[in-house]
Design a protein around this nucleic acid. Structure first.
Lengths: 361, 361
DNA sequence: CTGAAAGCGCTTACAG
DNA sequence: CTGAAAGCGCTTACAG
């Protein structure tokens, strides 16, 4: 490590350009109503360039009362984040939307117990001007508090009966589509493995979609046919084992997470149950690898990149003080039909991997 | 959006506690040599609590000349980040290490062309006190410049002939282990699919490990048997197709990325080539799903969480002005033997599917 | 068209 | 043991 070079401040630039710091600031910030002589402007720009001057972010934040930083708060249990093949895309969507702006992204992961403290402080210290909260929980009181205080917040996912702007997919509808797809393929006895515990809004909603799908076709709901997953492939393995003990055995299973579905697939393989011949499977998420497992997974595509991008855009309008066009953005999902549901087989096209897609919106 | 409540500053706390702002600062920061009367301290603490006071981060940064923020710069092409099942774990490792500290994490993704500008500015604006750079590239000049200026930097990965502290695995050795494992199983004709283009240090090194493995056993290196992957499963599909045209055909392939290997697996399936009976496969990374594909992937485990954690720890000592115990941390990898390499079959593992267990020689 | 001055909210010598 | 004052590096009315 070398020694830090002397800091260069606006004072240095002013001196070199032979103007005041005011003028330096005016020029560098391109202040609208400031009329600066072209020659002066040139001199300032040149001096700044020559000195490699960059305005100090802290000083600027202090005077502007803006951190120029947005937060991304990840409220998932470690087990989830760990296997989340989804996060990178969301991240890319967010940073993509921020790219042309002066805003930067602060990342915070929140362990369960300390929910409150952490991002409350982040906002109160004015380290961030607003934030995206991924994986909001119903029991999160700090969140409602912050929202009341006027901190710009966007939920990735959503919360019932809270007016916080959100970006999400219609989980109910998506699950409904997945299940009715199986029903139309002739299945009447369809199991479900949830993606996570039911206090996660998304888990609950996907379960609702499953029930609505059954109801639509007058298939009675059987609690025994629903097993809870816990985000991991491992939990899918176990859930499927449980499901296989139910009699009569289901002929199809809707697994509300591809990662969990991969675990289920392993159990099926070990039990010598062929997919889709003996058991049809539909997943959820369309993780990048869903097309590459055997058999390729029929699943519901979640627009991860777009979710991140839209959340960031929404937050950007919020911190700009504008009111957003809509405070609840719902992006559409699409059923991606591959081999695991058996639909392709019915079409005598066992090789296909891309599959047909049908939008559900 | 409600209206922002009046900011509470140290002045408010001082007034309520009946002391000066100096005393407030002294108490709240627990300044070592300040002797504050217990009763005064209590009053200050109580006032701060009552008002929900949190020191303004910008003001604090300005006076301390520390942003209390560390950067994580992701220098991967979008295609890589997109499918990186690895990033969440690294992230968790980093935020875990930062949890007990006052440092926060700023995330920056860098698209190829604009390499220079972006994080140069971040550092020059003093928005970050130092950073972790993931995926350093040999042609990155900005990086060397910043390092010369004394900005604390830790490389996730490493660069030849640069004295920047780094955290990495020994890619050469890991690849060597993977390849010699195949050789010991009897293979003599072993192909390789790289994880990415060879200007990535890691890709180059894994290729070197492959060559060293062959050399050790006096197996001549054949350029035709090496095909470049590009981080994605799709690229693995294509690479394997190319490899299958080589005559005589390899009996085993080392794929330096699990994600890429999954693509290779698809090609093999489509060609009716059984793994491991007709073709043995060893991957790299041990992505969370490696154990859940068919056949389960033998691979090299990369300690993703630990890499993130160690990088953060190293950076923390650097920004604290201390010199680190070692400026090059090398974490160890481990060969994880599953079914795809055929080793389990040789042991008469009951799990293995039917078919001959013929020797691979 | 440009500059002097105040102020953002802290911390930290320096007095007392 | 505690307070008045300076200063971190900017921006922004306000004069001129």
């Amino acid at each position: 490590m070398g020694r830090r070079p002397r800091r260069v401040t606006s004072k240095d630039v002013a001196r070199l350009a032979g103007v005041s710091r005011t003028t330096v600031s005016l020029v560098l910030n391109d202040v609208p109503h400031a009329r600066i002589a072209p020659e002066t402007r040139r001199r300032v720009l040149e001096a700044a360039r020559q000195l490699g001057y960059r305005p100090n972010a802290a000083a600027r934040s202090l005077v502007r009362q803006q951190a120029m930083t947005l937060g991304l708060i990840l409220c998932h249990p470690p087990a989830h984040v760990y296997t989340d093949p989804f996060l990178p895309q969301v991240l890319l969507g967010i940073t993509g939307a921020l790219q042309k702006t002066e805003y930067r992204l602060l990342l915070e992961t929140v362990a369960e117990p300390s929910l409150r403290e952490d991002y409350l402080d982040l906002a109160r210290e004015k380290r961030i001007d607003g934030f995206i909260l991924s994986g909001p929980r119903v029991d999160d009181v700090a969140l409602r508090e912050l929202h009341k205080e006027g901190i710009p917040i966007v939920l990735l996912g959503h919360l019932p009966d809270v007016a916080i702007p959100s970006v999400d997919v219609d989980n109910v509808r998506a699950a409904y589509t997945a299940v009715t797809h199986l029903i139309r393929l002739g299945h009447r006895r369809i199991g479900m493995i949830t993606n996570g515990p039911l206090h996660y809004t998304a888990s609950q909603e996907r379960l609702n979609g499953y029930r609505q799908g059954l109801a639509k076709y007058n298939i009675p709901f059987e609690p025994d046919l629903v097993v809870e997953g816990h985000f991991t492939a491992e939990s899918g393995e176990e859930a499927m084992r449980r499901l296989l003990t139910v009699r009569p055995r289901p002929t199809a299973v809707f697994v509300a997470s591809d990662t969990v579905a991969l675990g289920a697939l392993v159990t099926l393989r070990q039990a010598g149950i062929r997919v889709p011949e003996d058991m049809a499977l539909v997943g959820f998420d369309d993780i990048p690898l869903a097309a590459y497992v055997d058999p390729p997974l029929t699943t519901v595509r979640l627009p991860a990149y777009e979710l991140g991008r839209e959340a960031a855009r929404l937050l950007l309008t919020l911190v700009a003080g504008e009111s957003p066009p809509s405070s609840r953005t719902v992006l559409s999902t699409a059923l991606v039909v591959r081999a695991s549901c058996g639909a392709l087989q019915a079409l005598h096209n066992p090789q296909s991997k891309g599959g047909e897609t049908g939008s559900n919106t």
